[in-house]
Design a binder for these strands. Structure first.
Length: 110
DNA sequence: TTGCTGACCGACG
DNA sequence: CCGTCGGCCAGCA
């Protein structure tokens, strides 16, 4: 399909994140086969902000469950608000029960 | 073409 | 516990 760019792949996975679930950059990177390059996922997400189609980048956090990329949403409170809007608790820029909401693409999609 | 940066991750001291 | 460093790859001046 449209796996022309590395970013397209990231968008695909990001859109497949179910409502009320979150995942990590490393998990997506691992699913894409670029496990060691989790940074590229974050980079791709940055491009997703300017992407035509909307990508739930707010559902993507770092390995610790911290909203590291919240500053890139324009205003830092957007990301947390979106997560809370989906029933995900966020305290101190960290997802509550992160393990419980964690959605592993390699485990769910395969 | 080269070099720097980056929404990360894991290891080391 | 906390700070630091290396690695990974793609985009940009």
């Amino acid at each position: 399909m449209n796996d022309n760019s590395f970013f397209e792949k990231v968008y695909e996975v990001a859109r497949q994140i179910p409502y009320g679930r979150v995942t990590s950059y490393g998990a997506i990177a691992e699913y894409l086969g670029t496990k060691g390059s989790a940074r590229m996922v974050g980079w791709a997400m940055n491009a997703s902000l300017t992407a035509k189609e909307n990508v739930p980048a707010h559902r993507v956090v770092n390995r610790k469950g911290l909203l590291t990329g919240k500053h890139h949403f324009g205003t830092p409170n957007i990301m947390q608000q979106l997560l809370e809007s989906e029933g995900i608790g966020v305290v101190d820029d960290q997802v509550v029960d992160f393990e419980r909401y964690f959605w592993n693409p390699s485990h769910e999609l395969k």
